[in-house]
């Protein structure tokens, strides 16, 4: 288990793991061009590093076919501030990002999947990588920054990643790592809303994408210690409904297989996931609830 935070390191030292969505399918339809988006994010990353000299940033790119680390401020060799030119952060990050995007695109061609299946990014992969990195920081001893994850996501949720993303969320919750999400797509992302709600992070969907930097710097730059004193955006209702396994419809009432917990929207004879054969459902539940009820309402 991670060791308790110590006072040796100040309260407000952060390790920020940023997950950048580089999905070309999203960026080709977005109103904000990718280059503009990057300039907002780069300024934001620089401002995080400015806030405290030992703040640390890790950037992971979330592509539609792969994920990779593209920047780690603890590894960058030259600080690059003194030469007055393009700071190391920008040049290094941009170069790696470019490499990554080309590689990601090639993977797409190799596997020639129809575009409908690739419209989501591999958020589950980048979240898992971020959590592994954070565990390494936890292992490094008591002198460590407070980690958090920021997802800057635009593409829609990929339903096939549901289990993996939920696993990551619960692991983050157990390690007390908040997942902040800045969602710049058109509809709300149910995955990210749940992620932020469960882990105690902030979910924000900026109204004005031109002012993205301002959203980032006012909401997501605050370290975990200062959050206690600030009024950060609150969640406006989280969609906790499930989708059934048979038709992928979102339902608010359904049937659960008692063996494998698969969700179905109507009564089946046999579970399609685990193959159990079901008896009658309703009478059983009705009798159980009658026995359970202790204070009958009048």
């Amino acid at each position: 288990m991670p060791s308790a935070p110590t006072k040796l390191y100040a309260d407000d030292v952060s390790l920020l793991v940023v997950l950048l969505d580089t999905n070309p399918f999203f960026w080709s339809t977005s109103s904000l061009p990718f280059s503009k988006f990057l300039s907002h994010v780069l300024s934001f990353l620089n401002s995080i590093l400015l806030l405290n000299q030992i703040n640390q940033i890790v950037v992971i790119a979330t592509g539609c076919n792969s994920c990779d680390y593209i920047y780690d401020s603890s590894l960058s060799t030259n600080p690059g501030i003194e030469n007055g030119k393009l700071p190391a952060l920008c040049s290094e990050l941009l170069k790696k990002l470019e490499d990554f995007v080309t590689r990601d695109e090639q993977l797409n061609k190799q596997h020639s999947l129809p575009p409908t299946t690739t419209s989501s990014s591999l958020l589950s992969g980048s979240l898992s990588m971020a959590l592994c990195y954070i565990q390494r920081v936890f292992r490094s001893g008591p002198l460590r920054p407070h980690p958090r994850i920021l997802c800057v996501q635009g593409s829609s949720d990929g339903p096939e990643q549901y289990v993996a993303i939920m696993n990551s969320i619960f692991s983050a919750q157990r390690s007390m790592v908040p997942i902040d999400s800045c969602y710049i797509g058109s509809n709300n992302s149910a995955f990210l809303q749940q992620a932020s709600y469960i882990t105690g992070g902030v979910y924000q969907k900026p109204q004005q994408l031109d002012g993205l930097f301002q959203y980032l710097s006012t909401v997501f730059a605050t370290d975990l210690h200062s959050r206690a004193f600030l009024q950060l955006p609150k969640s406006v209702g989280v969609d906790f409904r499930a989708s059934c396994f048979c038709h992928k419809k979102t339902i608010d009432m359904g049937y659960i297989c008692s063996v494998c917990l698969s969700i179905f929207c109507k009564h089946h004879k046999k579970c399609s996931t685990c193959g159990s054969v079901f008896g009658q459902a309703q009478s059983d539940v009705a009798s159980a609830s009658n026995l359970k009820r202790k204070t009958p309402e009048t």
């Binding site: 209702g237 359904g254 008692s258 579970c271 539940v285």
Partner: peptide, 22 residues
């Protein structure tokens, strides 16, 4: 590990309520 005859497989009706606004 479940022992097959210990519990009878069944479909349980459940509801997924939505969280109300704060």
């Amino acid at each position: 590990p479940a022992i097959a005859e210990f519990a009878i497989a069944n479909l349980i009706k459940m509801g997924f309520p939505q969280r109300a606004a704060e």
